[in-house]
């Protein structure tokens, strides 16, 4: 058993609930103890850092302080939480002035952070600690013949990535370990527009369209991503792309943990497959 502190992030509880729900049975099957960080707060996310830097650092630091008490690596399945918590962690170490102010603010709540936590992305933990080999050995329903486009998005691999920031391969290996074919496609680590989908939908929908087109042209039957924001854009907004660009995409987008779960023989219900807006049932039926 490997032990971690777990930071789901706000989306995994709501708009990306299939992520939050599918992480737990998969972790159990892979002998990972993911104990949810008690009473965690929003990581601060990109908007906080664009409105007030000190407040943003404090949001992250409260979580880091809570995690330090427990003592294990802090693992999040959300690429945005990962970047935010990881960057704050680095800044608190490198910037004494920021550190001093954050210390004072945390002290009001009798909290203290000494810099001892390692922040990690769940996909990286699956790749490095658990490894594709071990996951492959536990597969009971090999996804033979399924063409999956691994979508890394941005913040899993940039700027703090464990993989190549331009042409990463870790998800390809994880997908292959499940018996599926990892589709090779040019845009696998390009931007989906993230939260601009709300404020500047024209910009984001155009980016999403490019991604879906590129994946489809390369023969993908579905996409897989670890990131809740990417998932919302590609899955939930796919119908908007179809109406704006007169396209007919019907490309299911799975969370990494959902895809792994299917191959490990975890039932569809436990993986919340029915919560995906573009139903993955058609392409997954042979394996369920």
């Amino acid at each position: 058993m490997k032990y971690y502190s777990y930071f789901p992030g706000c989306s995994a509880e709501a708009a990306a609930s299939p992520l939050g729900l599918s992480v737990l049975p998969v972790a159990k099957e892979l002998d990972m103890d993911l104990a949810e960080l008690e009473d965690w707060n929003c990581c601060g996310s990109t908007p906080f850092g664009s409105v007030d830097k000190l407040a943003a650092a404090c949001m992250a630091a409260r979580n880091l302080a809570l995690a330090e008490k427990r003592g294990f690596d802090l693992v999040t399945p959300c690429s945005n939480c990962f970047v935010v918590l990881h960057s704050a962690n680095t800044q608190l170490k490198e910037l004494p002035r920021l550190r001093e102010q954050v210390d004072k603010a945390l002290a009001v709540a009798k909290l203290k952070y000494s810099g001892g936590v390692r922040v990690r992305h769940l996909a990286e933990v699956l790749y490095t600690d658990i490894t594709p080999e071990v996951i492959g050995a536990k597969v009971t329903k090999p996804l033979k013949g399924l063409k999956v486009a691994p979508y890394y998005g941005c913040q899993l691999v940039r700027p703090n990535g464990f993989d190549d920031p331009e042409f990463p391969h870790s998800l390809d290996e994880l997908v292959a370990s499940l018996g599926a074919d990892a589709v090779s496609w040019e845009l696998k680590a390009r931007c989906c527009g993230s939260s601009l989908v709300m404020s500047e939908p024209d910009v984001a929908l155009e980016l999403i369209n490019k991604l879906l087109r590129n994946a489809q042209e390369n023969g993908a039957q579905c996409l897989v991503t670890p990131c809740p924001l990417c998932h919302i854009n590609l899955d939930v907004y796919q119908s908007q792309v179809n109406s704006k660009f007169k396209t007919k995409y019907n490309l299911p987008v799975l969370f990494l943990t959902q895809l792994i779960g299917v191959a490990l023989g975890i039932p569809a219900d436990a993986l919340a497959l029915s919560r995906n807006v573009v139903s993955p049932m058609r392409v997954l039926a042979p394996y369920l």
């Binding site: 706000c10 707060n41 407040a55 409260r62 954050v102 004072k104 603010a105 009001v108 709540a109």
Partner: peptide, 23 residues
Amino acid sequence: NRIKGVGELKAILNEAKALGGAK
């Protein structure tokens, strides 16, 4: 979904505000 420590979090953020913002 409200956290238990919402008051505590507010206190931290108020203190941060009082400190005047980090450069």
